[in-house]
Amino acid sequence: MDNKTTEMGTPKLSIIEEGTELRGALSSGFPLLVRGAVHGEVTCPALSVAPQGSVSGQVRAGLIESTGIVAGELEAEVVRLSGKVGDDTVVRARSLEVRLASDDTMVVRFGEARLEVGEAPAAPEKR
């Protein structure tokens, strides 16, 4: 057993359960699953926001995966979004994935948001 796994060998995970609301700064060395609500600063290797969960504030993580509500400043290597992205949100990531639903419906609903993804695109020269 290493310090990242349980006795059963399954990965350790910090969970904010449904009905729990947390305000302030949260820093975790383990992946974080949010089913409740978090407002504030979040730092963790991986953040997963469940459909009933919400996170607002400053988030720094290796991976952010949301099917719930996110808002604020999200910074991660990889971001996968569905669910809802609140107003005044900034997403900075090396890679962003927003899938298209097979029935052509909206998978993610954006408010007023800014997306900075990958190497900053430089304008091409006019011909």
């Binding site: 990889v78 890679s95 962003l96 994935e97 927003v98 899938r99 298209l100 052509d104 419906t105 909206m106 998978v107 993610v108 609903r109 954006f110 408010g111 007023e112 948001a113 800014r114 997306l115 900075e116 993804v117 990958g118 190497e119 900053a120 695109p121």
Partner: peptide, 23 residues
């Protein structure tokens, strides 16, 4: 600037973006 009913977005990994989304 989104559609009045919201714009449907799909973004594949590898896409490079500097995008401002407004209502």
């Amino acid at each position: 600037e989104q559609h009045p009913k919201g714009t449907i977005f799909a973004i594949e990994p590898g896409a490079r973006l500097s995008v401002r989304i407004t209502k």
